[in-house]
C-alpha cells in the first residue's frame, strides 16, 4: 500500500502519517494553553523595587545570610525576620553561553547571551548579558546588574551589562 492509499484510509480522522516512519499518528484534538499564577506576597518588595529600577536581595537579620533569589524564610535559623538589601553595583562574569536553539516561548527573540555573575560574597545571578558584540564577552569581565524593559512584552526585568 502506498503512502497515499494508507493516508486515505483514515478519512475523517485527525490522523497523519509520520514523515520518517510512515506510521499513522493521532493528532490531538484538544489543545491546552497553560499560564501559571505565582504568588508574590511575601517577597512583594522585590517587585516593587524592580519597577522602581532597583534589584534587591533578602538578608537574615539573625545569621546575616543573603538570599538571591530573595527568600522570605531563613531555613538555617528557622526564622523569617529578613531585611532587604541592594545587590552590589559591580560583579564578575563567571560563565556564559549563547543560546542558538531556543524554547518555544523564547523563539521570537534573537539569540541571547545567558550568563552567571557573582556580586560580592553572597549573591550570584543568572540573566541575559546585554552586549553589542558577543565575541567580546570574556569570563572574568566586570559587569553590572540593570533593570530593563523587556521588548516586546514591555515588562521590567533585570539584565547583566559589561562595565566599560
Amino acid at each position: 500500500m502506498s503512502n497515499n492509499d494508507e493516508k486515505s484510509s483514515y478519512e475523517g480522522l485527525p490522523v497523519s502519517l509520520d514523515k520518517k516512519l510512515g506510521v499513522p499518528v493521532w493528532n490531538d484534538v484538544r489543545e491546552l494553553k497553560l499560564r501559571y499564577r505565582m504568588s508574590l506576597g511575601k517577597i512583594k518588595k522585590f517587585f516593587s523595587a524592580l519597577s522602581e529600577g532597583k534589584i534587591m536581595a533578602t538578608k537574615c537579620k539573625h545569621c546575616g545570610r543573603i538570599y538571591f533569589p530573595p527568600q522570605a524564610d531563613c531555613p538555617y535559623c528557622m526564622r523569617s525576620d529578613m531585611e532587604w538589601v541592594d545587590v552590589p553595583n559591580e560583579g564578575v562574569l563567571e560563565t556564559f553561553t549563547i543560546v542558538n536553539i531556543k524554547p518555544t516561548t523564547f523563539s521570537h527573540y534573537d539569540d541571547y547571551v545567558l550568563a552567571i555573575a557573582r556580586f560580592g560574597d553572597g549573591i550570584k545571578v543568572l540573566a541575559w548579558l546585554r552586549v553589542d558584540e558577543k565575541s567580546r564577552v570574556r569570563i572574568g569581565m566586570r559587569v553590572k546588574l540593570t533593570v530593563i524593559k523587556r521588548i516586546p512584552e514591555g515588562y521590567y526585568t533585570f539584565e547583566l551589562e559589561p562595565i566599560d
Partner: peptide
C-alpha cells in the same frame, strides 16, 4: 521565566 535557558544552555 525571564531568561529561557535550555538544557544545552
Amino acid at each position: 521565566e525571564n531568561f529561557g535557558p535550555t538544557f544545552v544552555g
